[in-house]
C-alpha cells in the first residue's frame, strides 16, 4: 500500500503539476503559432517575467494576502497577468510588427523572438540577480498530509498549498479560454483567422485587434504558468531553456494551432516525464517473493535519471514528428 502512495505522490501529483504548467504554457505558444504562424521562443521568458512581477509585488506588499487569507503571491497574480499582457503587446509592437511589415519569412521572426528571449533574460537577471527566491515572502507554505483509511498505509498523500491553487487556477483558466473561444465574438474571429487569415480579413475582421488580443491572452497565460511554477518550487531567472522544449513538445503533440490539443499535449509530456524518472522497482517490490529466483531486479529501474529529464520531451517531440507531424489532434500548421 505504501508503494501505491509513493506512486501517487511521485507520479500522479507531480505529473499533474508539471502537466498543468506545460499545458498553460503550450496554449499560449499554440495560439501564437496559429495566428502569427511562428514558434515564439520568448514564451518561457514571458513566464519568468510574470513570476518576477509577482515576486516584485509580493516583496512590495508582503502582508496584503494575510487579510484575505490567501498567499500574497496568488493575490498579486491578476496584476502580474495584466502587466505581462501589456509586455507581450509591447514586444509585438516594438519587435515583431516591423519584421512582419517587412514581410520576412517566419523563421526570421523565430530568430527575432530568440533576441527578445535574451533581452528579457538579461533584464530579469539584471534586476533580480541570478539566484533562486521563494515567492512566499511573508506567508507560510501549507502542506496537507492526507492519511489513507487503509490497513498498512503508513505514508500519507502529500499535497502542498500551491499545488491546490495550481489545479484550481488551471481549471478556471481552461474553462475561461473555452468560453472565450466558443462564445465571444472576438474568440470566434480568432478561430476564423487561425483557419484562414485572408478570408477572415476579407470578411471584415480587424486582424490587428486579433493579433493584440492573442498576445494579451498568451501573456496572461504565461504569467499564470510562470507564477504557478515558481510557487510550487522557487523563482529562478534561468528556467527558460529548460521549459521551452517541453512546452513546444506539448504544443506539437497536441497539434499546432489547437488549444485543446495543447492541454492534452501538456499532460502527455508532464506525465511522460514523471513516469520516465519514476523508479519502477518500488512498485515491483511487494511482488518480490512471487518472482522467479533467476530474475534479480536491479535496484534502480527508472527509464532515465532525473538529470536526463529533458531527454523525455525531446524523445516525444522526435517520435511525434516522425510518426504524426500534424499532432494527435490534427493541427493546422505544418
Amino acid at each position: 500500500m505504501n508503494e501505491l502512495v509513493f506512486f501517487i505522490n511521485n507520479v500522479v501529483i507531480s505529473g499533474s503539476v508539471s502537466g498543468s504548467i506545460y499545458a498553460i504554457g503550450a496554449i499560449g505558444v499554440t495560439l501564437i503559432f496559429s495566428i502569427m504562424r511562428f514558434a515564439h521562443f520568448a514564451h518561457a521568458d514571458m513566464m519568468t517575467f510574470g513570476a518576477f512581477m509577482v515576486l516584485l509585488l509580493t516583496t512590495l506588499f508582503p502582508a496584503a494576502g494575510a487579510s484575505l487569507g490567501v498567499p500574497t503571491a496568488v493575490l498579486m497574480l491578476p496584476l502580474a497577468m495584466l502587466l505581462t499582457a501589456a509586455l507581450a503587446v509591447g514586444i509585438d509592437k516594438t519587435f515583431y510588427k516591423p519584421l512582419r511589415a517587412h514581410g520576412v519569412k517566419p523563421i526570421v521572426l523565430v530568430i527575432g523572438s530568440l533576441g527578445v528571449t535574451l533581452i528579457l533574460q538579461g533584464l530579469i537577471r539584471l534586476f533580480s540577480g541570478t539566484g533562486g527566491q521563494s515567492l512566499y515572502v511573508d506567508d507560510r507554505k501549507e502542506i496537507f498530509r492526507l492519511a489513507l483509511p487503509f490497513e498498512g498505509a503508513r505514508a500519507p498523500i502529500v499535497v502542498t498549498e500551491p499545488q491546490i491553487y495550481l489545479f484550481v487556477i488551471t481549471i478556471v483558466a481552461v474553462v475561461a479560454l473555452h468560453l472565450f473561444l466558443n462564445r465571444s465574438r472576438l474568440g470566434k474571429a480568432m478561430r476564423a483567422m487561425s483557419d484562414n487569415p485572408e478570408l477572415a480579413q476579407a470578411s471584415g475582421i480587424n486582424t490587428n485587434t486579433i493579433v493584440a488580443v492573442t498576445w494579451m491572452i498568451a501573456g496572461a497565460l504565461a504569467a499564470i504558468a510562470g507564477t504557478l511554477l515558481s510557487l510550487d518550487v522557487t523563482f529562478k531567472p534561468d528556467l527558460s531553456f529548460f521549459l521551452l522544449l517541453p512546452i513546444f513538445a506539448a504544443a506539437i503533440v497536441g497539434g499546432v494551432g489547437h488549444p485543446y490539443g495543447a492541454i492534452a499535449g501538456g499532460f502527455v509530456v508532464g506525465f511522460a516525464e514523471t513516469l520516465a524518472v519514476f523508479n519502477w522497482n518500488v512498485l515491483l517490490r511487494p511482488f518480490r517473493d512471487s518472482l522467479p529466483a533467476w530474475l534479480e531486479l536491479p535496484s534502480n529501474l527508472a527509464f532515465v535519471g532525473t538529470e536526463y529529464k529533458i531527454v523525455v520531451p525531446f524523445f516525444i517531440l522526435v517520435a511525434i514528428l516522425v510518426w504524426r507531424p500534424t499532432g494527435l489532434f490534427k493541427g493546422k500548421v505544418i
Binding site: 528571449t117 538579461g122 537577471r125
Partner: peptide, 24 residues
C-alpha cells in the same frame, strides 16, 4: 553584493538587442 555577476548578465541584454536590431 552580487553586482559583478549582474553586470555580466547585462551582456545577455546587449546580445539580444543586437540580434533584434540587426534583423530590423
Amino acid at each position: 553584493g552580487n553586482m559583478d555577476s549582474r553586470a555580466l548578465q547585462a551582456r545577455v541584454l546587449v546580445i539580444g538587442l543586437l540580434i533584434t536590431m540587426v534583423l530590423r
